[in-house]
Amino acid sequence: MALQRPPLLILCFYLLAALHTTSDAALSSHLPQAIDCSTSRNYTSTSAYAANLNQFLAALPENAVSRNGGFFNGTVGKGTDTVYGLAMCSADYSRSDCGDCLAATANSNANGLSNLCPGSITVLAWFDPCLVRYSDTNFFGTAEIGTAFAVTRCLIFFLT
């Protein structure tokens, strides 16, 4: 009797192992585990949306880590230039690691969101210590299942 599941089992094992294994180099560079950048609409670096986004990202370490126990959602701006965003810290990392991760998302270096998703109005970025999501439309209270779906399928596979 031949089993049909071993290839999926092996793939899921490697996927889950990669999500829970982090070297010091990965922590210091905050490489994304999953990222979804919009491509349909973009903003320019001199737009009001860009200024609001920069303000939102710069405030994340203080808002999410220091004031709200590892979670924050909020808005910056008005009208069509409003940035709706949220940040969440992983329970597997210290608040300091999460703060560093959130600060790195606002940087203009190679691993900052402005370089990972240049001009993208809607972004969902999952790093080991933190998750950041923002958009020009209000997504609060709306589940996002697209990015996490593959990991969820693997977890369900292991549990059944």
Results as ranks from 00 to 15, higher is better:
2 A>T: 14
3 L>M: 10
4 Q>I: 12
8 L>S: 07
12 C>L: 02
15 L>M: 13
18 A>I: 08
21 T>R: 11
23 S>V: 07
25 A>E: 13
28 S>T: 07
29 S>N: 04
30 H>F: 15
31 L>V: 08
33 Q>L: 15
35 I>D: 10
37 C>T: 10
37 C>K: 05
39 T>V: 12
41 R>H: 15
41 R>D: 07
43 Y>I: 00
46 T>L: 07
48 A>Y: 00
49 Y>N: 06
54 N>G: 08
54 N>Q: 12
54 N>E: 03
55 Q>G: 01
57 L>H: 01
62 E>C: 05
62 E>A: 12
66 S>Y: 03
67 R>Y: 12
68 N>F: 04
70 G>P: 04
70 G>C: 08
73 N>K: 15
74 G>W: 09
75 T>L: 08
76 V>M: 01
76 V>H: 01
77 G>L: 09
79 G>D: 05
81 D>W: 05
81 D>S: 11
81 D>E: 15
82 T>I: 08
83 V>S: 05
83 V>W: 06
84 Y>M: 02
86 L>D: 05
87 A>D: 05
88 M>K: 15
88 M>E: 13
91 A>M: 01
92 D>V: 05
94 S>W: 08
97 D>I: 04
98 C>I: 02
100 D>E: 12
104 A>K: 10
104 A>L: 06
108 S>M: 12
108 S>F: 07
110 A>F: 11
114 S>I: 11
114 S>P: 08
115 N>D: 06
117 C>M: 06
119 G>N: 07
120 S>D: 02
120 S>Q: 07
122 T>H: 12
123 V>N: 05
123 V>I: 08
126 W>T: 13
127 F>L: 14
130 C>W: 06
130 C>D: 08
130 C>K: 03
130 C>T: 07
133 R>P: 04
137 T>F: 10
139 F>H: 11
140 F>V: 06
141 G>C: 06
146 G>D: 15
148 A>N: 12
151 V>R: 04
152 T>K: 13
152 T>Q: 14
153 R>E: 13
154 C>A: 02
155 L>R: 15
156 I>V: 14
156 I>A: 11
160 T>G: 12
